[in-house]
Nucleic acid binder design. Structure first.
Lengths: 213, 213
DNA sequence: GACTGTGAAGCCATTCACAGCT
DNA sequence: AGCTGTGAATGGCTTCACAGTC
């Protein structure tokens, strides 16, 4: 298992492969080829093999891959062979939706603390969680060993919230505010910008209507 | 304005530049250099210039770019010099959050119809919209000239919903269900997978803890 | 002197094609 | 025969470096 630098695109696909493998496993499929995975997720068979090759040899030549084994390997590579506690800041509609999103639980993520600085939101309940004021964050991070924080605040608050999280030991941030955060480089950050993908669609539709209208 | 194929990464960054330019404009800044844009959004100055060069020459050598002009150009390129009506299927928490998300309105998007097939959700109100049964979709698409649909349903319903949208004239889909949709290739699809980015974080944290523990 | 626009170079990811197993 | 694993080839995006312009 040599450790070259792995392209982020490979990690993204690995996440998708692993979910596809979970589906196969639930359906009782025990063996799968790179071509079948490729068809299932919309990439080329060579891509699937190359992606897996970054991490080892998981298949059998002439046969394919064992579904359960490969599923476990991919989950392990992604760090999903364990449970992750998260905190979230911003108890608006988006924060609420993320707290109740089943996709997180299915992958081993639990949001164990929700914070806001809006007094009208503090004390409200989201499932079994109570929205807490920001000053309760430090203790909760320590108590639950939280390393990842989610930002679902309005844009103007995002940078300040990120700084506060980091000061209290958060190592990685998933940012839903449409604003590039300015953070130390040892912090892992990924942005989920809800309108960027929509704008890729309008960009592409623009070209189409030019052709067809 | 030569029309080479534009990398999707360029379109993504264009969307980010345009929002940064809007911020500068609101703050009264009138002129900006590629280096300042680069600093503001976290890319290299050459990247900014190269991205813009796909679409024309917008700057003045020795000076930089006029903020208002460049903002308008970028918005126009992205197809955001006009209003876009959207429909959304799935009136759960995520659907609710998307319907009330201000970031869409700020960029010229309006969700003008929300659909669900769950009888307990039909008739509910989200802002000024009433959740409608699926069979009302065809008329609404025609009436409002809708080309883009958003899928915020549970995973199991997503493929069927996508097929229904397309049958009724939708040309582009923003899919929040964590499942690769199987669609004709003339349909534009982009997926927003809420846990993939989280799994990139856990992947990267995995490497870090290996070093530091 | 400052900054854009761009061909060339460099780098990285994907695809190809085939050797190696079963 | 079928399918994996992988070096080589390809393709595409990013960075470099400098000519062009103000």
């Amino acid at each position: 298992m040599k450790t070259l630098r792995v392209p982020e695109a490979t990690v993204t696909r690995l996440s998708i492969y692993s979910r596809f493998l979970e589906r196969l496993d639930r359906n009782g499929v025990t063996s799968v080829s790179s071509g079948e995975i490729a068809d299932g997720v919309g990439v080329s068979p060579a891509q699937v093999r190359k992606d897996l090759a970054y991490f080892g040899e998981f298949g059998t030549r002439g046969v394919g891959y064992n579904v359960k084994d490969l599923m476990r390997y991919t989950l392990k590579i992604l760090g999903l062979d364990r449970h992750w506690n998260l905190i979230l800041v911003g108890a608006g509609n988006l924060g609420y939706a993320l707290c109740t999103y089943r996709g997180f639980n299915e992958r081993g993520f639990s949001i164990i603390g929700v914070f806001d600085n809006d007094l009208t939101k503090i004390g409200k309940r989201i499932n079994e969680l109570e929205v807490l004021p920001m000053e309760k964050m430090p203790d909760l991070i320590k108590e639950y060993g939280v390393r990842i924080g989610i930002i679902a605040t309005p844009t103007r608050a995002a940078q300040e919230v990120a700084d506060f999280m980091i000061k209290n030991g958060i190592q990685a941030i998933l940012n839903f505010a449409p604003l590039p955060l300015n953070l130390p480089e040892y912090i892992e950050v990924r942005n989920v910008d809800l309108s960027v993908k929509l704008e890729i669609l309008t960009f592409n539709l623009g070209f189409k209507s030019a052709q067809t209208m």
